[in-house]
Amino acid sequence: MSVSSKLKETLVCLKAGRVTLPYPAQARPVPEKFRGRPIFDVTKCTGCAGCANNCPAREILVFDICQEIRVLEYSGLRCTYCGRCADLCPEKAITLSHDFETGTDSIHDNQQRLEIFMSTCQRCGRCFEEPSALEELKMKGYRLDDLANDRWVFRSRSYLEGEPAVEDIPIEMD
């Protein structure tokens, strides 16, 4: 056994002392920029669906009940907290909170459902200004994601004639 090494290692330990925090009694404050659970502000949201379009985890679903009412649901299941939704939101209606303790018995604690009255901008898809072609809306017109099964519907058969509903469940509409 090399004594000098052991002494040096002891010194390293002694110098450091105790550094563990008594979490959860005392949590370390998170930095200003921290990306926690996203919070949606219903008063600012215009329902452009830019966030839903660019969510890598497909956590944000959009369903049009009728011409005037659009439902936007954040399902809080597999969100990666990347913050792309907040980046791209033209109205800055999404903020990434400092909330990271999201463990819960009921997933509803993490979910949010916005019912948005769509006044003038209906279905044109132009209220979302994409920074580049890479963020362009994939789907214009009615959005009918499958809220019950947390599934994003890529294309709706009713508005894109000739293009079948590929890659996901087909939606039939009159």
């Binding site: 550094v19 920029k33 907290y81 990347c82 990434l96």
Partner: peptide
């Protein structure tokens, strides 16, 4: 385990600065 603990202690400020720059300890996005 002594060095295991010390290594992780020395590493922690790196995680914090990454969190300050990017908003997350590990997934920088």
């Amino acid at each position: 385990d002594t060095l295991f603990m010390q290594s992780f202690r020395i590493r922690e400020p790196i995680m914090w600065i990454a969190e300050k720059i990017s908003g997350n300890r590990k997934t920088y996005a």
